[in-house]
């Protein structure tokens, strides 16, 4: 499985009134073809800005450094024109709220076919035929009729399926899904997760799922990257990260979840709150909230190092290393 996307030392500065502030700080990861890669983190961890940087959709006056090589070309050094040829064609995006990502006044057909006609040069009837197939793929009942409808006529879950169909229209190789199920009920979420899982298998589609919900990643992700303060805290195979976490932040996130077997024990929150933009502490960004911090953590900025094959953690003291 060769890497489809290779992000190396990605750094993003956002322009604020008090000058540039670092939102992503030296992030590196790879996503293979047909892989579901999960990025987990709380608000302000830089997970959404990572996706925006890959798509060239960062806010005005933001700056980036590093590399993001996709299909052999660096997305970060592309011109606006070159990016437009990739975006929507080779890389597509699904956002959190399908009621804002779909246009309320345009028919579903228009939204599904306009970029097929633009990117692929298809004619009207050909594009329409593919649109029907796409709606069937994402299990919209009665696709022919759905083409003439508008977004408001569908439920939240159906809208998200349509948004995924729009993203798939030009057969992208990579789908960026930013909190794709956060606005949905669990029953509907289950359907969307199954859909992403099936699309990956059927189309060898690579999917980056960005979410704060470790349960979602546990269901679909092959590998998981946990971000904190714009940096990687831990990255590795799903099972290793969720059952044998090596970074105290990952452990804390898992402990803060309700216990799967229930019971009267209190929830165990991580003390403090995540740093806001431009206020990431010196040293390890997590050290003020970490129960295992040693003096070095206040000054040394740790990079992820391999703790077992394929599994890296940015915590040199490795206090969880001895715990099976």
């Amino acid at each position: 499985m060769g890497a489809l996307l290779e992000v190396e030392d990605l750094t993003v500065w956002l322009a604020t009134r008090r000058g540039p502030r670092m939102a992503v700080d030296g992030l590196s990861f790879q996503v293979g073809s047909g892989e579901i890669f999960g990025i987990a983190g709380e608000s302000g961890s830089g997970k959404t800005m990572t996706a925006m940087a890959l798509l060239g959709l960062l806010p005005h006056a933001a700056r980036t450094s590093g590399k993001a090589v996709f299909e052999g070309r660096d997305l970060l050094s592309m011109s606006a024109r070159q990016l437009r040829a990739v975006r929507g064609r080779r890389i597509a995006m699904v956002s959190q709220d399908p009621s804002t990502s779909l246009h309320p006044m345009l028919s579903i057909e228009t939204q599904l076919t306009e970029h097929m006609r633009h990117h692929l040069g298809l004619g009207r009837s050909e594009a329409r035929g593919r649109a029907v197939e796409l709606l069937a793929t994402v299990r919209i009942p009665d696709p022919e009729q759905a083409l003439g409808a508008h977004a408001a006529q569908f439920s939240g879950g159906m809208r998200q399926r349509i948004a995924i169909a729009v993203a798939l229209a030009c057969e992208p190789r990579l789908l960026l899904a930013d909190e794709p199920t956060t606005a949905l009920d669990v029953t509907v979420q289950a359907g969307i997760l199954r859909l992403l899982h099936r699309l990956r298998a059927e189309r060898e589609l690579a999917v980056v799922v960005i979410t704060h919900d470790l349960g979602v990643l546990s269901a679909v992700a092959d590998r998981i990257c946990v971000m904190y303060g714009g940096r990687t805290a831990e990255v590795g195979p799903r099972e290793n990260v969720l059952t044998r976490p090596r970074h105290p932040y990952t452990r804390g996130l898992l402990d803060a979840l309700p216990h799967p077997e229930g019971g009267a024990a209190a929830l165990r929150p991580i003390p403090g709150s995540p740093p806001s933009l431009g206020e990431v502490p010196e040293g390890c960004p997590f050290h003020p909230r970490c129960g295992y911090a040693v003096p070095d953590c206040r000054t040394e900025r740790p990079a992820p190092v391999l703790v077992e094959p394929g599994h890296a953690s940015a915590c040199p003291p490795d206090p969880l290393g001895g715990i099976a």
Partner: peptide, 11 residues
Amino acid sequence: VPRADGAGVLP
């Protein structure tokens, strides 16, 4: 409800 148990079970 998905569980964060790392088992990769689809809800």
